[in-house]
Amino acid sequence: MKFIVQWNGQPANENAVIERFMKTGGRTPEGVTLLGRWHAIGGLHGVAIVEANDTQSMTAMALEWGDMLKMNIFPALTDEDLGAALGKHVAGRQ
């Protein structure tokens, strides 16, 4: 399953976040595959798309950075997945 990961950090944590990222390369925990990651210019803000088979791996990711960054993690649907779900929803209302 794919997930959207958004993070925001406070300026007070900037040096610690930079140090950890440079040390680890921002690697994901076991069970989480990074599909893409984008960073905002001039701040501790960004978004990643990752894939994992379970929420335990996603919890590990949140805990790894949660001491310095506020993280929001959402299940992600492709257009095809959403279309199928919407089709079932519409069919159930008829």
Rank of each mutant, 00 (worst) to 15 (best):
M1W: 04
M1P: 09
M1F: 04
K2T: 06
F3L: 04
V5Y: 00
Q6L: 15
W7G: 01
N8R: 15
G9K: 08
Q10E: 14
A12H: 06
E14L: 15
N15H: 14
A16W: 00
A16M: 04
V17W: 04
I18K: 15
F21S: 01
K23R: 15
R27G: 06
R27T: 13
P29D: 00
V32E: 00
V32N: 01
G36Q: 12
R37D: 06
R37E: 12
W38D: 05
L44W: 07
H45K: 14
G46C: 06
V47L: 08
V47Y: 02
A48N: 02
I49K: 01
E51V: 01
T55A: 08
Q56V: 14
S57L: 03
M58F: 03
M61F: 14
M61C: 08
A62C: 10
A62Q: 10
E64K: 13
E64G: 06
W65H: 07
W65R: 10
W65C: 08
D67M: 03
M68V: 14
M68E: 04
L69E: 01
K70R: 14
N72P: 00
I73N: 00
F74P: 04
F74N: 13
P75M: 04
A76F: 09
D79T: 11
E80K: 11
L82Y: 15
K88P: 01
H89Y: 11
A91H: 02
A91P: 01
G92V: 05
R93N: 11
R93D: 04
Q94E: 13
